[in-house]
């Protein structure tokens, strides 16, 4: 029984015919290098650069893990679509909720602790 599933599993992997054997250790080395950069970023004390090294690099690392470790590009295409769709929904959630949550006062209300006295 497991042989059968195993066979299916291998056909599943066969989608990327002709893809070169990934050198996983090399990918890992890249990831660690990027981690070092993102830790070093704040020491330069330039705000926009910190943002880039922190979140830009996080996105790059995420893509590397998804592509090389999770093999998302070798799966049938709908896998990428459903993952993207869920991310887009989260973006939508953020875009529609942030204007409310980030709003500190309205016509008849203010958020008390937002007026400048930290607790």
């Amino acid at each position: 029984m497991s042989e059968q599933s195993q066979a299916i599993s291998e056909t599943g992997d066969g989608h990327g015919e002709g893809h070169v054997e990934t050198n996983y250790v090399k990918i890992w080395a890249w990831l660690v290098g990027l981690l070092a950069v993102s830790v070093a970023g704040p020491f330069l004390e330039i705000f926009w650069l910190t943002m880039v090294t922190a979140f830009g690099i996080a996105c790059v690392k995420a893509w590397m893990v998804a592509k090389h470790f999770m093999h998302i590009t070798l799966e049938p295409r709908f896998v990428g679509y459903i993952v993207m769709t869920s991310l887009v929904f989260m973006l939508l959630f953020f875009a529609a909720v942030a204007p409310d949550v980030m709003n500190a006062e309205g016509t008849q209300w203010v958020k008390p602790s937002w007026l400048g006295q930290p607790e």
Binding site: M90, F93, M102
Partner: peptide, 15 residues
């Protein structure tokens, strides 16, 4: 799981 963590992190980021 993406939407579970997504909801939590989106809430965190907007705060």
């Amino acid at each position: 799981e993406i939407v579970i963590f997504g909801g939590l992190l989106a809430s965190y980021i907007m705060h």
